[in-house]
Simulated assay, not measured.
Amino acid sequence: MSDLVTAREELMAVAIGDLGTLLDRVEKLAPQLDASRMELLSASSDLADMVEAYAKRMDEITENAKLQTVKHIARRADEMARGTVDTQTRAMEEAARVVFRNEIGPVLQRVTLPLQDVAELARKGARPWEGWLLHAATAVLASAISWAMATWLWLR
């Protein structure tokens, strides 16, 4: 049994020696761990600053993108509106031409035919008052044409 106690004591002595070596290593490792912790804290702080700067930059980029998008949409809407106005203007002009050709043209022809007859009679000198009638008819025709043009312009 003495061998057993001696072996146990010897193992205990070796374990205590190993424990001492381990404690020395841990004591040497503590400043390195502390330095690593400080570097990690510094890196964490730097990373937080970088993330904040990145977030700020992304906000600026997003705002710029929004602004450019709004400008693009406004520009395209303006172009579309101008195109629509041009198309409507052309359609209205064409409609006015058709109305003038189909509605006002025949009326003017009906008005001018009697006036041409009156002018022919005035040239022949049939009656003296017919000259004044020609002037009155001319005034009526001028008034009708003015009225027709005003109506046409109003309809545009």
Rank of each mutant, 00 (worst) to 15 (best):
123 R>M: 09
110 R>C: 08
118 V>T: 02
110 R>I: 13
125 G>D: 00
127 R>C: 05
95 A>C: 02
117 D>A: 12
84 T>M: 14
113 L>P: 07
118 V>I: 04
121 L>Y: 07
128 P>S: 02
99 V>M: 09
130 E>H: 04
96 A>G: 13
111 V>K: 02
118 V>R: 00
108 L>C: 06
88 Q>G: 14
105 G>V: 08
103 E>C: 11
106 P>W: 03
110 R>V: 12
124 K>Y: 07
86 D>L: 14
129 W>G: 04
122 A>D: 11
129 W>K: 10
133 L>R: 03
109 Q>S: 14
135 H>C: 14
97 R>S: 05
105 G>R: 12
91 A>I: 02
93 E>F: 04
116 Q>R: 10
128 P>D: 03
134 L>T: 00
132 W>L: 10
115 L>E: 02
107 V>F: 15
103 E>I: 12
112 T>D: 11
92 M>Q: 04
89 T>N: 08
120 E>S: 03
106 P>G: 02
115 L>W: 00
125 G>V: 00
96 A>C: 14
124 K>I: 09
114 P>M: 04
111 V>G: 08
124 K>V: 08
120 E>W: 00
134 L>G: 01
99 V>W: 04
99 V>H: 05
91 A>S: 05
124 K>E: 05
94 E>A: 13
122 A>T: 08
88 Q>W: 09
133 L>M: 07
107 V>A: 15
125 G>I: 00
115 L>S: 05
